[in-house]
Every structure is written in C-alpha cells, then in structure tokens.
Simulated assay, not measured.
Amino acid sequence: MRVLLIDDEEMALNVNENMLQELSGIDVVGKFTNPYLALEQIEKLDVEVVFLDMEMGEVHGLELAEVIMNKYNHVEILFVTAHPQYALEAFEVNAIDYLLKPLNKKRLKKAIDKTQGKLELYRESKKRNTVKDVPYYAKTLGNFHLLDNQQNIVRWRTKKVKELFLFLWQHQGTPIHKAVVMEQLWPDTHIDKAATLLHTTVYQLRKTFKENGIENAIQFINERYTLGVFIDSDYTKLIELLDASKMEASKVEEILSLYEGDFLEEEDLSWAVSIQQNLRHSVLQYFERVISNDERDLQLVEKCLVKMLKIDYYNESYMYQLLTFYNETKSSQKMKEFYKTVEVRLRDDLGIEIPPEIVRLYEQNIQFD
C-alpha cells in the first residue's frame, strides 16, 4: 500500500510515519506539510492512500480531500486529526476512515485492514472489466431496472438507495444541494435525522458502484451532490426521438416500442410525478400528430391509437377516434370488438354511460357488416 502523509506539523508527520512503518505492507512514499506540493506529487508517486490532517492553516482538509477525490478517484482518503467535529463531513467526501490524534495502534491497524480490502476490491474489479468504456443502462419506462456494464441487473441495498440514484441521475449531472436532496427524499423527517440518513444512503450508493469498479460515483462539492457515472437509458432515447424534426415511420415504431409504460410508474416517487406527466403528454401529442398526418400510414395510425388508449385508458376522445378509424377502414369485426371493450371500460369499470356520439357512430355504421 503506497501511502502519502499530509499534515501542517512536522512532528505529526514523523509520528504517523513511525507508526505506519511498524505495520507490514505499508510504503510511505511521501510526507508533506505543504498541501499544494503534495497535490503535485500524488500522481508521480503512484499514491494509493492519503493520510490527511483536517485543519492546516489556509487549506482545510475537507477542501483538499474534494480536490484529490475529483482528480484522482482511485485514491483513498483517511483523515488523521485532532478535531472530532468533522467526522460526518469526512464521510460525505467518501473518506474511508476518520482517526483521532494521537493515533492508537489497534485502531490504526483496523483502518489499514479496511483500506487494504477496498484497494484489493478495486484492483480485482479493474482486472475483470473495462467499466469506464461501457455505459450502464437504465430502463425507466414501465418497470425500472438498471443494467451494469456486464448486463446484470443492479441490486439495491435499500429502496432509498435506489431513489437517491434516480433523483441524482434525473438531474443529468447538475449539482444538487444536499438540503434539496433531504427535502425530496425525507420530507417529513427532522433535519438532523435526514442528514444522517442521507450520509448513510450516499455511502451505500457509492459502495454499490464501487463494487462494480466505478470509483467516486457520487461527487460532493460545495455542499452539492452529483452523479458522476454515465447512464444510457430508454428515457434519453425517447426524448431524442420526440425532439426529432421528421416523423419517420421507423422512429414512430421505435417510440411505440420504447413507451412500455409511464416513467418510473411502479416506483411511487412524488418528485417524479411531474416528469412522468410531462413525458406522457409529449408522447400523446406526438401520436396525435402522427394520426392527423395527411400522408399517414394506416397501420401506424392504428398502432398509435391503440397505444394512446393504453396510456390514457378511459379517454373517450381516443375511443371515438379508434372507432372512427375502424369504420373508415371497413374493419367491422374490430369495430364490434372494440365497442365491447368500450362498454366494459365505461359501464362496468366506471359505472357511466357510453357517450351518445360513440353510440351513434357505432349504431349508424355497424350495419355494413
């Protein structure tokens, strides 16, 4: 394990070095009282672990840790400090441990063993795959699941870990203040309790990605969280298709196939409702343009009308349009079958009468059978 020490006190550096040298497998490759000089040497010295003080004059350890984690995401941070009050903030920047001065040999050994285990996991995962070259894929329309770089479904430790991932991912790389995250994920929880839950959930989410070889998946800078993993998705593809200037038949077919259900419809997430509704509205508007196109493909029109009713199950206007389509295309059998469907949906399910215009359309035109 290649270790670099940063502390503004020369004596503290020497004490820490002496204790580390008593443990096997530790190579102290550098000691610095100047944090800026230390930053310049991390890559050159092939550092794996940084032992970092918290308060160092002009530079705070938390700020330096953020810089190191963002620039060298494979490096583990282990705080060694006389200030216990920064423990929670230390774990927010994904520090592996937080040791208080003066160092206790037994406690130090435990931290080293923990760090060694994480380094070994990282090395193994790096050998197994080229994770950074292969994106994750999120299926969000209908039932949700995330596929990792090996096409395996990611298993979430808790429902909140999954929700935190979705919340950060949906913001497409925009940093989100931790207060906003707490308000959205734990709206009725006291702020202190919510902060603890957030720290735990962030840790678990980072761990989930790190087990798949992704380092520093969740970045924390200036009190804001960002998802630092590229995620491809059916949602992104759908937005691209809806924004396309031309409504080509192949693109319409792709939208019909992609939209298997509403956005995250089975997740019951309050913050996702507006996204879900806006996307549904955009898809329905798109299909309405397809069926009103003068050069429309009749097969596509039928598929769109059927999909529209699947999305908006009791929409009487869509029912009328589909019956009209079957009438215009002389599809009497389909017209009869769908009219029975209308009866079930409106009379049996909702307990309301079929609108007069639908009844009239059916009774006046079914005679051509």
Score class of each variant (00 low, 15 high):
residue 258 L to Q: 03
residue 364 Q to P: 04
residue 153 I to P: 05
residue 120 E to W: 06
residue 292 S to T: 11
residue 102 P to N: 13
residue 282 S to K: 10
residue 337 E to D: 15
residue 335 M to E: 08
residue 247 M to N: 15
residue 214 I to R: 07
residue 111 A to P: 08
residue 251 K to A: 10
residue 26 I to G: 00
residue 287 F to L: 14
residue 232 D to M: 03
residue 42 I to T: 06
residue 56 M to D: 09
residue 147 L to I: 05
residue 368 F to L: 14
residue 246 K to A: 15
residue 48 E to Q: 14
residue 111 A to G: 07
residue 72 Y to E: 13
residue 161 V to M: 00
residue 145 H to R: 10
residue 189 T to W: 00
residue 102 P to C: 03
residue 82 A to Y: 06
residue 272 A to K: 09
residue 150 Q to C: 08
residue 332 S to H: 12
residue 322 L to S: 04
residue 152 N to K: 12
residue 243 D to M: 08
residue 41 Q to H: 07
residue 319 M to V: 01
residue 129 N to Q: 14
residue 353 E to I: 03
residue 142 G to F: 07
residue 259 Y to D: 12
residue 221 I to P: 04
residue 169 W to L: 02
residue 87 A to D: 03
residue 112 I to E: 05
residue 326 Y to M: 05
residue 152 N to W: 06
residue 73 N to S: 10
residue 60 H to K: 04
residue 197 L to M: 13
residue 272 A to W: 00
residue 149 N to T: 12
residue 138 A to D: 09
residue 66 E to K: 14
residue 292 S to K: 05
residue 162 K to T: 04
residue 180 V to F: 07
residue 328 E to C: 03
residue 62 L to E: 13
residue 369 D to A: 15
residue 84 P to E: 04
residue 239 I to L: 08
residue 257 S to T: 02
residue 369 D to H: 06
residue 32 F to H: 15
residue 167 F to H: 01
residue 10 E to Y: 12
residue 76 E to V: 14
residue 17 E to A: 07
residue 294 D to L: 14
residue 110 K to C: 07
residue 153 I to C: 09
residue 50 V to D: 04
residue 135 P to K: 05
residue 78 L to I: 15
residue 248 E to V: 05
residue 168 L to I: 01
residue 75 V to K: 02
residue 36 Y to P: 07
residue 97 D to V: 00
residue 118 K to T: 05
residue 267 E to D: 06
residue 313 Y to I: 14
residue 224 R to L: 03
residue 245 S to Y: 02
residue 73 N to R: 15
residue 160 K to W: 07
residue 241 L to V: 04
residue 172 Q to K: 11
residue 111 A to Q: 11
residue 246 K to Q: 10
residue 45 L to S: 00
residue 47 V to D: 01
residue 81 T to G: 01
residue 182 M to I: 10
residue 235 Y to A: 04
residue 152 N to V: 02
residue 222 N to C: 11
residue 6 I to F: 10
residue 241 L to I: 10
residue 23 L to I: 15
residue 217 A to V: 02
residue 208 T to D: 08
residue 120 E to F: 06
residue 214 I to W: 00
residue 185 L to Q: 03
residue 191 I to Y: 07
residue 154 V to P: 13
residue 294 D to F: 15
residue 38 A to M: 12
residue 309 L to Q: 12
residue 328 E to G: 04
residue 265 E to F: 04
residue 323 L to F: 10
residue 357 E to W: 00
residue 268 D to M: 12
residue 354 I to S: 07
residue 250 S to R: 14
residue 143 N to R: 06
residue 94 N to S: 13
residue 99 L to V: 04
residue 275 I to N: 09
residue 139 K to Y: 13
residue 266 E to A: 08
residue 297 D to F: 13
residue 349 D to R: 01
residue 270 S to L: 08
residue 224 R to E: 14
residue 91 F to Q: 02
residue 313 Y to L: 13
residue 332 S to P: 06
residue 218 I to S: 01
residue 351 G to L: 02
